[in-house]
Design a protein around this nucleic acid. Structure first.
Lengths: 213, 213, 213, 213
DNA sequence: CATGAATGAGGGTTCATTCAT
DNA sequence: CATGAATGAACCCTCATTCAT
């Protein structure tokens, strides 16, 4: 990287590569993996279809690398916000806020990614992108671990009490998030983030307070 | 229906039509909507691909009618089990049990359906199956209403206390269900139903018992 | 094959399948493997491009199966003509006559096949059609063996005398054939078969009669 | 050429141009015309794909000019070796030795060229490189003429006796050469040159000595 | 009704060639 | 000149849908 010329070119390349991912983000969020055509992404990014192949080897790579990038970003954002010394609920709210905010109008990408994970990866007859797929699974796992860690810490501190495992709880919270996003997508637009966060927090903290006999 | 001949033919037709849906159920559950080819369904049903068109006008109709059928069945099953005089939790458990049990190994169909709902319906350039789609949305709504009704009743009775709306809560519970199913699909097999039900119930009833200051 | 219905359908299918090979024969002979587009074959056969896939899984299969078919036919034709009791030269002439005659205007197919053999097969990254390729190599080998056998027999009988191996000689004769066909192709039309046969025979029998000192 | 600066630049340009042809020689020999991508040549030559266009107008020109260059070289080499005062067989052996030796490991280029000649040139819809193509055909013809001349001379001297035309014989000898090279390519490596030469000479001189009745 | 076959309409991918720096 | 990038033009192959029997 001593050579400034090379540095600039690398930077430009990276920038374009990112532009493509940004475009892909919008289209994948809108249409899901299968209904997205390379041409849509290209058009959205201002490139020709063939140009995409200068940056990615195929459609799957665009998708996976995008997913990895976004999950990394979210996790980074979360890591920057979390503070074990704060009360559990504050941390939780931060996480939720970030998740609902990070993508902006492309919030639905999470649904596309999640759906991709449970479907397409399984049928890999002639596996490609082994390394990327590993990262993909890893980052998705990291997100869950993040929340699980939060819960575990709170448990230790006696902040919360539950007989459920931390991983299970993290999964449940993920389910609530996805549900919220699914509602938004069905409505065709982002909902109110604050409401979403509060509702989830409210639900998490005490459920529906069943009167135990 | 006076004519017994016609009656028989109708019945046979219905039976075959159902066979196709049964097959479609298995394949859609396994592969999702887009990765399922008509030929897969045909093979699974013991028909030729072309024969499917004697019973359904296109792939989308197979899918939608299947979804409607299954949701109707579930709701019917649930309706048969629910009893407003029973405690809320008992009813809730019944619902969960039915949902997790109804499809058997095809549990993942719910995920496919749910994913279809948030995606494909939106892009209806040249809308088809208006009526079916209406039913589709309706039945999916009904399922939510079912749970919402349960909650509303319990609220009125003072069994549960929460500031969250019944519809919101119903949605959340749906999210927990989907999350559980997604885990199963990722694992490649059904999980233990009892555990699933209990975990969700545990979570619903009291959340994670945050120590309120 | 007891069922006449099935028998007929099989026959029709076989007939169409053959039509495609016939068309492929013409196009491959004209343009070689790489410059032949599926669409050309389809048009030549009176089908749409997609229809070819009802009969063959891909372009390579069309080509290989065609090559196998033609070599089998030629060998069969040769086998029917050869008679070990006849003088070597008569047999040789029969072989040459058949080879130059068999394809008619599609004589150049032999060149396409031969060129394919020495090139494409080698680079099989993700091998397909293993069995067909085996047959392909086998039949091409058979043709050589045929001639080699002829020579070997003549040698034993003392009809011919040469210190060269039969396989080598068979190869050389193959070279003479190909050269003749190449000339024809360059000219854009079949040449005179009788002349071709006589020239080759003349050359084979006594070479150029170098005056040995 | 008075200007030394210009002279140097011309020389450098020529040198690079040759490097590309050298690279092209290796790749075309390995993969044939169609399976060779410009990028392969560029990589082999240490240039970028686009740079090739500074020296040649397109893929076809690279190929044709290479073919012309190599055939010229071979013919020159042969011309330097031939000596009408030597016996025919000695000259013949020299020719064969040169042909089998000239390309070294790239012996298969002859096959690629020969195959190209009989195929691509025909389909010139929008003819390009007229002049080059003329040279191409000319040089290939020259090679044949070379051998034909050898034969003609020997005939006149009474060294050899045959009723076959010199051109025909030259063609046959070309066929024997190609056959040998094809065998080598199929085996994946050069064979023994001496053996090859001797076998061909043996065959040429007296064929297979059919006992004429 | 059942089905084998036919096909139009793409979709992903490749590659020779052009362009801008 | 060198080159990274851009792209038009194909081409192979898939699949939902239609048709003929």
């Amino acid at each position: 990287m001593i050579n400034p010329r090379e540095a600039r070119e690398k930077a430009v390349r990276k920038a374009k590569s990112d532009l493509i991912q940004d475009a892909a983000c919008r289209v994948f969020a809108r249409r899901g993996f299968h209904e997205t055509r390379l041409e849509d992404i290209a058009a959205e990014a201002g490139f020709s279809k063939a140009s995409l192949y200068n940056y990615y080897t195929d459609k799957e790579e665009i998708f996976l690398s995008l997913a990895v990038r976004e999950y990394r970003r979210i996790i980074e954002e979360i890591d920057g916000e979390l503070d074990d010394s704060r009360p559990f609920l504050d941390n939780m709210k931060s996480v939720l806020f970030i998740v609902f905010t990070h993508f902006g109008e492309q919030f639905a990408l999470i649904l596309t990614i999640s759906n991709f994970q449970t479907l397409s990866l399984l049928h890999a007859q002639m596996p490609r992108h082994e390394s990327l797929k590993y990262d993909f699974e890893h980052e998705l796992g990291q997100f869950g671990s993040c929340i699980a860690h939060l819960i575990r810490t709170a448990k230790k501190r006696g902040e919360i009490q539950t007989c459920l495992g931390s991983a299970t709880l993290a999964g449940f919270i993920g389910g609530l998030i996805q549900r919220t996003l699914a509602d938004w997508r069905r409505n065709g637009a982002m909902g109110d983030v604050e409401t979403a966060v509060n509702d989830i927090v409210e639900f998490i903290t005490s459920g529906i307070c069943v009167e135990k006999v």
